[in-house]
């Protein structure tokens, strides 16, 4: 997307705006809106590595999110470790769980819908475990992280008094995730991953070790998604089995890149920005009739998801590039005519 001069200027302006945003926007509501948009883009980027580039659709990405979040919460609250230290353990935990699930699923050759279903089952199994293991996780009532009272130590404790701190934190994470995926796309590994997505047997035939490539993708995805869990814990200072391993995070992680554009660097960011903006508009528009009734924005997410799956195989990124189903079919028909 950065190919033309126009796009380059567009991204530069957007980047500059992102950096100065907290000075322009002073309302806490809108800073929070930006934080949540970036957070979801980050989660979606984790899914995108495996689902978008690798074609391995996970329905249970919460399993990585929740593991990262729980490790971050437990090591801090029970052992009093510093959050900057626990972060690495949280990511390692995400990789470990990813390697475990990936090894079992890929070794036994689960593909397509069956891989999606087994990830869902793993997330549910972890949810039950987290609820039952009360000695470690406090069970259903959840873990609370002690609030940092000392403003001098807000950076050391990874807790920020204002939204601006969290905004820059998640902005840095999101930019890092964009760089990682951008580099991955241009690497040998990225090319192999796309080859496995397009045709696993053909990729194997030309010497790609599909198992290893998929393992790499799930581990990278697991690490990134676990880091999302770390951010969530630091921002909301609580974790319980339903937030960690419930279906909501799994669904959010996959909806955003699919709507934005699977297998593209900016798809998750675009999807998240679009969904949050439209969700907020829907809420505002109906505020007059129904005040604070939950569900409306998610109804909207579901409708958009179905529409994108039906008409935009490459999501919003594809729409910008002028690819949608009707037009592509039209071109195919033209080609057929030309052949005839």
């Amino acid at each position: 997307m950065t190919g033309t001069m126009g796009w380059r200027i567009f991204w530069l302006v957007l980047g500059a705006l992102a950096i100065v945003a907290p000075w322009i926007i002073t309302s806490g509501f809108w800073i929070n809106f930006l934080i949540l948009t970036l957070f979801l883009a980050f989660l979606g980027q984790g899914w995108n590595i495996m689902g978008g580039y690798g074609g391995q659709f996970s329905f249970g990405h919460a399993v990585f999110f929740g593991t990262g979040a729980y490790i971050q919460a437990i090591l801090q609250s029970k052992f009093g470790w510093n959050p900057w230290l626990t972060l690495w353990f949280a990511m390692a935990g995400g990789v470990l769980v990813a390697a475990f699930i990936g090894y079992l699923s890929f070794r036994y050759g689960l593909r397509g819908s069956y891989f999606a279903l087994i990830t869902l089952a793993f997330a549910e199994a972890f949810r039950v475990l987290a609820t039952a293991a009360e000695g470690v996780t406090e069970g259903g009532k959840g873990i609370l992280i002690a609030l940092n009272q000392d403003p001098e130590r807000s950076f050391a404790m990874m807790q920020f008094a204002t939204g601006t701190g969290y905004y820059y934190f998640i902005l840095i994470l999101t930019v890092l995730s964009l760089v990682v995926v951008w580099a991955m796309e241009r690497s040998r590994f990225g090319a192999q991953l796309v080859a496995v997505r397009e045709n696993e047997d053909a990729a194997e035939a030309i010497g790609v070790n599909a198992f290893r490539v998929k393992m790499g993708a799930i581990c990278l995805s697991g690490a990134m998604t676990a880091l999302g869990g770390v951010f969530y814990v630091q921002k909301f200072l609580l974790m319980d089995p339903n937030i960690a391993y419930g279906p909501t995070k799994s669904v959010e992680a996959l909806v955003v890149p699919i709507i934005g554009g699977m297998g593209t660097v900016f798809g998750p960011l675009l999807g998240s920005a679009f969904l949050h903006t439209m969700g907020e508009i829907t809420k505002e528009a109906t505020q007059f009739f129904w005040q604070d009734r939950p569900g409306l924005d998610l109804i909207f997410y579901g409708v958009i998801l179905v529409l994108v799956l039906a008409f935009l195989p490459n999501g919003l990124v594809g729409l910008i590039k002028g690819q949608w189903r009707g037009r592509r079919q039209g071109r195919a028909a033209e080609r057929k005519k030309a052949v005839a």
């Binding site: 659709f57 329905f59 819908s113 999606a116 669904v251 996959l254 909806v255 699919i258 939950p294 569900g295 409306l296 998610l298 109804i299 997410y301 579901g302 409708v303 998801l305 179905v306 799956l309 039906a310």
Partner: peptide
């Protein structure tokens, strides 16, 4: 599978 997931999101939140 994703289309039916989308339908379930709509129904559930409705």
């Amino acid at each position: 599978l994703l289309v039916t997931l989308g339908i379930s999101i709509v129904i559930e939140n409705a």
